[in-house]
């Protein structure tokens, strides 16, 4: 009999048992949370014809189609057909993203609520995280990477205010996409309180391709991003329901992708048709399930909370 070859993947999986058990509980807690609140769990296609155009998100191709970068457009089509509270957890794929908190295949939770805005999505997110923390730890006080975190204390900061304070310029008055990303990473994020939940809200309209303009402040998009313990956990919008404006923003984005020498994707006409039929005012949020598991498992690397990390770039 030949000796059994040494298999590091086998050893890695064995040590992951506690983290994967915790992850499984988190998945069940998320499902329980939404089901208790009358949300319907839905499944939308993973292999799609037209990924939502985003300047910096590249889709993985799959034959003549693509793997979804998010289930957003299909879920909004369901909203337009009368589904008022829906959620979905499943794999999403983004080409070329690999790092301590990025994998090219990852698990996303998205939930949508009709007749609501991004503030309602924030209240849902806050309640969800409290629900998971209480069930896992019996308390809203957790420790992540040595830092105590109080999940009851949420801070909010407007993007413009944060940039004026920490980067010395106003992205809402004059948006500079390149500088925005750099300063966000180099000046703004490092200035955040290190532990407690931090909500960065009201993005320049250019940085919210699928978000509604804030009533009375058309230069601002109703979008927020949630950070906990330095992890960027969730993104939410008051959904843009105006079909013409959405179509125009898709065109601008496709043009910018083309100018930047990046692949462009077919326009999702079914989605635009759904908007024309009428999408009720709605809010939606997307939350990285792997990162949520990192937070509660006190893991520094996303690879510590997934069973397999060899998915190809």
């Amino acid at each position: 009999m030949s000796p059994i070859p040494f298999d590091p993947q086998h050893l890695r999986l064995k040590t992951l048992h506690p983290a994967l058990a915790l992850r499984s509980r988190i998945l069940q807690l998320i499902r329980g949370f939404f089901v208790d609140r009358d949300f319907l769990e839905v499944e939308t296609p993973v292999r799609i014809a037209a990924p939502a155009p985003e300047l910096h998100i590249d889709a993985q191709s799959s034959g003549t189609a693509y793997l979804r970068t998010s289930p957003e457009l299909h879920m909004k089509r369901m909203l337009a057909s009368g589904f008022e509270r829906i959620f979905q957890m499943g794999p999403c794929f983004r080409r070329g993203e690999r790092g301590p908190v990025h994998h090219p295949e990852y698990t996303m939770l998205e939930f949508y609520r009709a007749h609501a805005d991004y503030r309602d999505a924030l209240a849902d997110t806050k309640a969800l995280i409290a629900h998971v923390a209480k069930a896992l730890h019996g308390s809203l006080n957790i420790v992540y990477q040595g830092r105590p975190i109080d999940l009851a204390t949420w801070e909010r900061l407007e993007v413009d205010e944060a940039f004026i304070l920490h980067a010395g310029w106003s992205p809402v008055r004059s948006y500079d996409a390149d500088r925005f990303d750099l300063d966000l990473v180099d000046c703004v994020e490092p200035a955040f309180p290190k532990g407690n939940p931090m909500v960065l809200m009201d993005y320049p309209i250019e940085a919210g391709a699928l978000a509604r303009r804030k009533p009375g402040r058309p230069e601002v998009a109703e979008r927020w991003e949630l950070y906990i313990g330095g992890l960027e956990l969730a993104n939410a919008f008051s959904e843009l329901t105006d079909a013409d404006e959405q179509e125009e923003r898709f065109e601008i984005c496709t043009r910018r992708r083309n100018d930047a020498g990046r692949e462009t994707y077919p326009r999702d006409d079914e989605f635009l048709a759904a908007l024309r039929r009428g999408l009720p005012p709605a809010a939606g949020a997307a939350l990285g399930v792997d990162r949520l598991a990192m937070l509660f498992a006190d893991a520094a690397d996303l690879g510590d909370v997934v069973a397999f990390q060899e998915s190809p770039d």
Partner: peptide, 14 residues
């Protein structure tokens, strides 16, 4: 060095 990508933003290497 670390791959970072702020929400919807460009890929950066810190």
């Amino acid at each position: 060095f670390q791959f970072v990508k702020p929400g919807k933003g460009q890929a950066l290497y810190r």
